[in-house]
Write a protein that binds this DNA or RNA. Sequence first.
DNA 1: CGCCTAGGCTTTGGATCCAGAAGAGGGAGG
DNA 2: CCTCCCTCTTCTGGATCCAAAGCCTAGGCG
Lengths: 221, 221
Amino acid sequence: MTEVAAASARVADHLRRAILAGEIAPGEWIRQEEVAERLGSSRLPVREALRILEAEGLTEHERHKGARVPSLTMHEVDVVYRMREQLEQLAISESIPHLTSADVRHLAELQGRIEALPKGDDAAVADFLELDREFHLSSYTGCTIDQLTSSVTRLWNSTAHYRRTFVTLTGPGRRWVINAEHRLLLDAISRRDVVDAERTLAGHIRRTRIELGKHPEIFTR
Amino acid sequence: MTEVAAASARVADHLRRAILAGEIAPGEWIRQEEVAERLGSSRLPVREALRILEAEGLTEHERHKGARVPSLTMHEVDVVYRMREQLEQLAISESIPHLTSADVRHLAELQGRIEALPKGDDAAVADFLELDREFHLSSYTGCTIDQLTSSVTRLWNSTAHYRRTFVTLTGPGRRWVINAEHRLLLDAISRRDVVDAERTLAGHIRRTRIELGKHPEIFTR
DNA sequence: CGCCTAGGCTTTGGATCCAGAAGAGGGAGG
DNA sequence: CCTCCCTCTTCTGGATCCAAAGCCTAGGCG
C-alpha cells in the first residue's frame, strides 16, 4: 500500500533512463526475460513497459523478434529537427502565458548549472545533456495540450542518442553559442515575449540541426 | 496456421475502426473483458491493443480505471490543427519526390469518389470522412520518415470524433470549398510543385480550423 | 432524515504456464 | 570442401489463474 506505483511503470522508467543515458545503443535487442530478471518482476510488466516506451518513441517493435532502440539515418534526424523547429514554437507560445515566476526562476537556475559545468570533462557530457533536456522541456510545462507536449517529448527521445554522440564528438567548443541562445530565450520568456521566444527557439533548433548535418560520421547507415 | 496475424493487432484494428467510425464516444470506458469476449480472445491481447491505440492517440489510460477515448476541449483541437498545419507541410514536401504516377492517379480517383458522393445524405458523412482521411494520408505515402507519418496519423486520430460531429452538423454546404482545395492540392502534387502543395495544404487545414472555431457547441466541456 | 463508513462486487494489474515462430548450428549429400 | 536442409534451442505471443485497487450500495449512527 505504501508505494505500489505500477510495476510496468517502474520498468518503463528504468528502461527509459537506461536508453536516454546511452546504456542501450540503437539496434541492440532488448530481451524481455533478462530485463524481468534484473528488475525482479515477471515478463508481463516488461511487455507493457516496452509498449509504453514504443509510444514515447524510444523503442520499436518487431513481431517475434523483439524490441530495440530505433537507429535513424541522418536525413531522419534532420526531419525530426525540422519537426521540433515547428512544434516547439507552438509549445513555447502555449506555455509562456501559464508560466509562473517560480517556473522562470527554475529555468534560470537550470541554465546557471549548465554554465557552471566543467569544460572538457567527458563525464560532464551526460550532465549537460540531462540539464539541456530538462531546461527545454521545463520551458513547456505551461503548455496544457497533451498532444503537443507528448509529441515534443517523443522527438527529443528519438534523437537522444545522436545528440549525445554529437556532443561527445565536438566537445564544449561551441557551448558558448548554446549558452547565449539559452540566455536570450530565458530573457524572452521572463518578459513574456511570445514572438521573441518563438524566434529565438526556432533559431536555436535550426542551428543545432545544421551543426549536426556537418557530422555525417555520427550516423552509421 | 491459417492466419495467425497477431491477435493483439486484430483487436487493435477492430477497436481503431470502431473509434474512428464513432461507435465509441469520447469519455466512454472500454471494458477489457467485454471486448475480449466480443472478439473471442483472452483479455491479454486486448490490453496490448489498448496500449497500441494509446500510442496512436486513440485512447488514454488511467491506472485501475481503464481506457477510454480522450475528449478534447475546443482549444486543444485548435492547437492540434495548428500542429497539423506545420507537420503536414513537412510531410507533403517529404512525400512528393517519392510519389509515383500511380500514386497520383490513386489520389485523383479518391478525389473523384469524394465529389461523386450524394449530397445531403447523412449516411454519406461516414463515407466522406473515410475518403477524406484516405486522400490526405495517401498523399503522404511517399514520406519515409516514420516519426513524421505516425505523428500526423496520431493528430488525425485524436480529432476524428470532432471532425465527424462538425461534418454532420454543417452538412455538405461548404463541401465545394474542400473539393476546390483538394483539386488545387492534387494539381500541385501532379506537377511535383512542393512549394505550391505546402501552401495549398496549409491553407486547407487553416480554413478548416477556423470553421471549426465557429462551432463551439461541438465541444462538450 | 441525511451523512458517513464499511463491505462486497467489479474491473484492472501481475504471475505462471504453454504454444508457436525465428534463428543458429550441425549433419548429410552433391 | 561447400552448400542446403533439418532439428534444436531460444525467445516472443497468448491463455488462465490469482491479487489488489476502485466504486457502488446498504446499513447504521448522529
